[in-house]
Amino acid sequence: MGFQITPAEYVDYLILAGEEIEKNGEYVTALDAKTGDGDHWVNLNSGFQKLIAMQKELKEMKLAPMLKKIGMTLMSAIGGSSGVLYGSGYLAASKALKEAEVLDIDTLYTFLQTELTAMMERGKAEPGWKTMIDSLYEAAKAYRAAKETGQGERQIIEAMKRGAEEGRDHTREMEAVKGRASYQANKGVGELDPGAVTMCMQLECLGDFILNHILFED
């Protein structure tokens, strides 16, 4: 029997992710001030705080409508570019997981891959462009590779976490193609992308949540 994340448990993960984001305000804002306009953390944090405030309502919902609600909430509360990208990701995942009741080893992959595809389409962006997509892309890729080579669930989730971290770290060498950093002479090279950093935080939290709270029985 593999892991199963119920909608209510997914909300528990969001709370952990929100707490992690809340803790890292100064770090992310300082990073963003170097390449962007310094508002990424404030906006993302207000999005997650909004979700935390709505936890009771979210926990009572089924998976697909809950993902849609999360998407609409993040879209409005975060705003700017990140809001619409997270919104598009969650809305697409909600559509793709219409039949699913929980996130398991298969549907979680569908979730990650759908979110990634939606963000790439909405942002007309590719991996390697120094964005939040880089963390998600490497995480989904590592997840798939581990799954296809028949590794256990624990290994797959650990691979996802490592993928996210590698994706984040690689943004340091990348040149920005989109957004404010792309107008800089050095295209932001030498700095991590703040969007990739906060995306990675969420994926790490999701991985840890599964490893510590869902899979600990085996």
Partner: peptide, 12 residues
């Protein structure tokens, strides 16, 4: 209207 120098979101 979005916030200062930030796009409005799709709902708006």
């Amino acid at each position: 209207a979005g916030n200062v120098f930030a796009s409005p979101d799709p709902a708006r």
